[in-house]
């Protein structure tokens, strides 16, 4: 079999994965896209491994070994990923990643308390700007 087939297939898979990663909004689907990318890599590795061993350039089967690890890796990622998605879903009832704005920096963070604190800063500065511009004021302050 020609090396091009698995290579092209893998490229397609990876491209689909990237597309899904960028375009999908449901966290689960994004996760699946990532898995697709990883599997594309696996396909690549295995195909290259076979090709390299037929040409005797790799007798250690590094590609296959890495593939096994990648599979395990993918599993671990899925495990943690699903747990996190579930956690998100439980906390907010949605796993739409576009609606995850809680940690993002927004105007909503500038609440009353923030304004007050900044105003205090500004006031402090203003007081610094005119410490004792007139003797009268100074005298008053002294009193």
């Amino acid at each position: 079999m020609h090396l091009a087939y698995p290579a092209v297939l893998s490229a397609l898979l990876f491209a689909i994965g990237v597309y899904g990663l960028l375009a999908r909004r449901n966290a689960i689907l994004v996760l699946m896209s990532v898995e697709l990318m990883l599997n594309a890599v696996n396909l690549n590795l295995v195909a290259f491994d076979v090709w390299l061993s037929t040409t005797l350039r790799d007798t250690l089967h590094g590609g296959q070994a890495l593939t096994l690890f990648t599979i395990a890796l993918a599993a671990a990622e899925i495990g943690i990923g699903l747990a996190i998605v579930l956690l998100v879903y439980r906390n907010r009832g949605s796993s739409d990643i576009d609606r995850l704005r809680d940690t993002a920096e927004t105007e909503a963070d500038d609440d009353a308390e923030a304004t007050a604190a900044e105003a205090a800063l500004a006031a402090d500065e203003a007081r610094a700007a005119t410490p004792y511009d007139s003797p009268a004021e100074k005298a008053e302050a002294a009193r």
Binding site: L21, V34, V41, I84, L87, R90, N91, I97, L100, T103
Partner: peptide, 20 residues
């Protein structure tokens, strides 16, 4: 959890790219 998800998604995507 939201922070974890963001971290997670960007990180695993990175891993996939590295592996490629």
């Amino acid at each position: 959890s939201e922070a974890a998800l963001k971290f997670f998604l960007s990180s695993v995507a990175a891993t996939a790219v590295t592996l490629l």
